[in-house]
């Protein structure tokens, strides 16, 4: 008998992306990671871009001309949106990971009520705040 022949069945990144029929929190988990990763990429691009300032006025003006296209205005809004989501959802996570807004442990009586359900009003409040910030910054970009 082939001793210990097993097949690994880890979901990998797919396990983050495909949240299936789970609650909204699992999607927020993935979005938090995605926006965090996106913001790091943006930071690197931003550092590279601003480093052109060292090569003198003319190069800098050239690079800025490149970024004047409307597609970059859209991308800038995407970065802003990622930042708003990451910051506010991160605030929610910090508060909840310190054990607040989750309620107290209680006897598990069927149908079970989880701490996730108890934090939903807070989550929706943060969600509304995110939407308000998104709308305000969109207005700012358009005007």
């Amino acid at each position: 008998m082939a001793e210990g022949r097993k097949r690994e069945n880890y979901l990998g990144i797919k396990g983050w992306v495909r949240a299936g029929r789970y609650g909204l929190e699992r999607y927020l988990y993935f979005l938090q990671r995605l926006t965090g990763f996106g913001l790091i990429i943006y930071l690197l691009i931003h550092l590279y871009e601003t480093s052109f300032r060292l090569r003198g006025e003319v190069t800098w003006e050239g690079v800025m001309g490149l970024f004047d296209q409307p597609v970059f205005a859209v991308l800038e809004y995407v970065v802003m949106a990622a930042f708003i989501f990451h910051a506010l959802n991160g605030l929610r996570l910090v508060i909840e990971e310190l054990g607040f807004a989750l309620g107290k442990p209680r006897r598990p009586v069927y149908p079970y009520e989880t701490s996730l359900q108890r934090q939903r009003p807070f989550m929706w409040a943060i969600g509304v705040l995110i939407i308000v910030f998104l709308v305000v910054s969109l207005y700012d970009f358009l005007v």
């Binding site: 996570l93 909840e96 598990p108 009586v109 996730l116």
Partner: peptide, 15 residues
Amino acid sequence: HLAGACSEACPKGVD
């Protein structure tokens, strides 16, 4: 990072 799927899956309400 508090995805919360564990509490949803738990068949004993352990949370």
